[in-house]
Design a protein around this nucleic acid. Structure first.
Lengths: 182, 182
DNA sequence: TATAACATGTAAGCTGTTACATGATTAC
DNA sequence: GTAATCATGTAACAGCTTACATGTTATA
C-alpha cells in the first residue's frame, strides 16, 4: 500500500523522503499514515525494484537530501494498480471501539471520561481538517498548475474524513447519553 | 490488541479458538477482525503467559476441540488494560480512499464503476448489521443471563458501525455526483 | 539556551496475512 | 458427489512500530 502512495505522490514530481512524510501527514492523514522509518526503507526497496531513482544532493548550510524520481516502470506500476478495481471493503480497526465493547463492567464515570477525551480529540481533528487541510487543497495555485481536477479528488477524500469525524462525534454524544441513562 | 479481545470474550466464559473466531466475525467485525491462524497462535502464546489455560476434549463423531479458560492473571490483565484510558485517536487506514485520492487522471467512468461496487458492498454491510447483528445483540436471552448492560455496550459499538456505513454511503453518492459534474 | 524544523538512515521486534495441511460430518 | 460447517494447527512472509543514531540551522 505505502508503495503506491509514494508512487502516487512522486508521480506529481520528484521529492525527498522527508517531503513524502509531510505529504502523508497532511494530505492523507485521514486515511493513511506511515512513520519516516517505513518511508525511507520502502524508497530504498523501490529503487532496487526500479520503480524510482534517486539523486543525492549535498547542501551547504543545510542537511543533505536524497531526491527520488519516479521511473517509467514506476508510472506503469501505479497505473496498473489503479486500473485493477477494488472489489472488497476496507476493513476497520478501531481500538477505542474494542474498549467500549468490553466496558460494561467498568465504572460508568470512567467510561464517560474516556469518551470525553475522545470527543476532544475528534473535535480537534475535525477543526484541523477544516482550518488547515481544506485551505491547502482549495489553494488557487492548483488551478494555475493544472491540478484543479486532482484537487477535486483530494477534496473528495477529505470530505469522507469530515463525514467520519462528524459521525464519530455524534456517536460519542449518543453513547455518553446512553451511559448516563443506565 | 487481539490479545485483549480474546481475553474480553473468554471473560464471559470458556470457549474454543473456533468460537472466538466466530465471535470476531459477528460481534466485532465492524471494528476488529482476525484470521483463525492469528487466533490459534495467540491463544498458545497466552497460555505460556498464564493468561489462559486450556483443556483438550476428544469428541466422538465430531472434531476434537481445545477449550480455553481465562485465568485470574488473565482477568487482571484485562482489567488493567481497560483501566488505562486511551488518550489517542484510532488511526484510519482505508485503501479505497487512497485509490480515490490518486484517481484524477483515471477514466471517470471507471472511477464511478468502482464507487458503485463499493456502494453495493457498504449497503450489504449495513443490511447485515441491521438484519443479522442487531437481532443477535437485542436477543432477549441476554436479559435473562444478566447481560443486559453488556448488550447495551455491544449495541453502542454497533451503532458506530451503522453510522460509519451511512456516512460512507452518503459520501459515495456525493462523490459520484462530483465526478459526473466534471 | 532550548526547542522546533530540517534531514536520513538502521535494527529489532511485534503484528498480521497468506498459504499449506488435515480430516470428519452434515446438508443439498 | 460436492459443498459447507466444524475444528486446529504450522510456516513463511509482509507490513508496521519503536527505538536507536546523528547533526545542522533557525527561531523563540
Amino acid at each position: 500500500m505505502i508503495k503506491f502512495i509514494l508512487l502516487g505522490f512522486l508521480n506529481y514530481g520528484p521529492m525527498t523522503g522527508y517531503d513524502l512524510k509531510q505529504n502523508l501527514d497532511s494530505s492523507t492523514v485521514h486515511f493513511w499514515h506511515a512513520h519516516h522509518s517505513q518511508i525511507y526503507t520502502m524508497l530504498r526497496e523501490m529503487e532496487k525494484e526500479n520503480l524510482v531513482t534517486s539523486q543525492y544532493i549535498e547542501e551547504e548550510g543545510q542537511p543533505d537530501r536524497r531526491i527520488y524520481f519516479i521511473t517509467d516502470t514506476g508510472k506503469q506500476a501505479l497505473a496498473q494498480w489503479l486500473s485493477q478495481p477494488m472489489t472488497e471493503m476496507a476493513a476497520v480497526k478501531d481500538e477505542f471501539l474494542v474498549r467500549i465493547f468490553f466496558s460494561a463492567r467498568r465504572e460508568p464515570q470512567k467510561v464517560i471520561d474516556e469518551l470525553v477525551v475522545q470527543r476532544e480529540l475528534h473535535q480537534k481533528q475535525l477543526e484541523m481538517y477544516r482550518q488547515c487541510i481544506e485551505p491547502l487543497i482549495d489553494n488557487q495555485e492548483h488551478v494555475e498548475q493544472g491540478l484543479e481536477r486532482d484537487a477535486a479528488f483530494w477534496h473528495a477524500t477529505l470530505n469522507m474524513g469530515i463525514r467520519y469525524e462528524e459521525a464519530y462525534l455524534g456517536w460519542i454524544n449518543e453513547t455518553i447519553q446512553m451511559i448516563e441513562g443506565l
